[in-house]
């Protein structure tokens, strides 16, 4: 196995050094691996993902993709955002085919390639269950459907790496489950390497071969957990004791590293005040 992404001692600060968003982050992701990123709010998950995507620059350290240091965004890395990233003036099909408007994807492109691309757009529509809404505008779709369009658009150019920042954060539990199986299926089908950021520990374990836990102030990698489940995941695995134990362990670790704790004295004081008045 070769590494698709390797971060070595990546450091990044915001506000002229006042906020240490990333400190000495080392992370190697193998070709075809599905890695999930969890951690308390503000621990730098989004920053790490955006840095790998090339949307942010890092102060020191190195990020290699296919053994080459990255220089800004690249077509081999696609990103799916939490929301608002679809183009509301384009229909679903046009959104998915957006990369066909860009020189980076159509340079030295034969007419056969164009046909292949059209076929791929159709296939993606089908896989994502979007055929009935192919000509609708994003504003007419539910949140779950919009995210499917965003994923299909990201996959259109056959990226080797898929970076996802809480893509299902705004969806309800049922829609999420459907999306989980969909994304696992598609990433295996496309041989994609995936880094997936989430707040939801259950989601992180269910999707990831490894779960990377980050801790805040300064943003760093705290623990990396191997998920003791077979590669082909099914929903019932969520009730296995191994799954639940890992979930418990990760949740406790997030709580311990978050630096937040419930102040019971303060709560008691508040409730006393409300009962007195």
């Amino acid at each position: 196995m070769t590494s698709a992404i390797s971060c070595r001692s990546v450091c990044k600060t915001f506000s002229a050094g006042a906020i240490a968003a990333l400190k000495d982050v080392d992370l190697v992701v193998e070709e075809g691996e599905f890695v999930t990123l969890v951690g308390a709010s503000g621990c730098g998950k989004s920053t790490l993902l955006r840095t790998i995507a090339g949307l942010e620059t890092h102060d020191s350290g190195s990020i290699l993709v296919d053994e080459r240091p990255i220089d800004g965004p690249g077509v081999e890395r696609a990103m799916v955002f939490q929301n608002y990233s679809l183009y509301p003036w384009l229909t679903v099909t046009q959104n998915i085919k957006f990369t066909r408007l860009l020189a980076a994807h159509t340079r030295d492109c034969s007419s056969a390639d164009v046909e292949v691309a059209a076929g791929r757009a159709d296939a993606l529509l089908k896989v994502m269950g979007l055929t009935p809404v192919a000509d609708a505008y994003p504003g007419q779709l539910s949140g779950g459907m919009q995210q499917r369009v965003a994923i299909a658009r990201a996959l259109m150019s056959r990226p080797r790496i898929l970076l996802m920042d809480e893509p299902f954060g705004a969806l309800d539990a049922q829609t999420r489950e459907v999306m989980h199986d969909l994304i696992l299926h598609v990433s295996r089908l496309e041989h994609c390497t995936v880094i997936f950021v989430t707040h939801d520990v259950e989601e992180a374990i269910y999707l990831g071969r490894r779960v990377v836990l980050m801790a805040p102030r300064p943003g760093r990698i705290d623990t990396v957990y191997e998920v003791p489940l077979p590669a082909a995941r099914t929903q019932d695995m969520k009730h296995q004791s191994g799954f639940l134990r890992l979930k418990q362990e990760i949740l406790e670790r997030i709580r311990a590293t978050s630096g937040l704790k419930t102040d019971f004295d303060l709560l008691q004081q508040l409730s006393r005040q409300t009962t007195n008045t």
Partner: peptide, 25 residues
């Protein structure tokens, strides 16, 4: 910004971002 960044991650050039994202949006 998400619309612009999405185009950046898809490899759009500066001119393409202005012509294909900022102006239509």
């Amino acid at each position: 910004m998400a619309q612009i960044e999405a185009a950046q991650t898809m490899g759009a050039t500066r001119g393409e971002i202005i012509g294909q994202v900022i102006i239509p949006s």
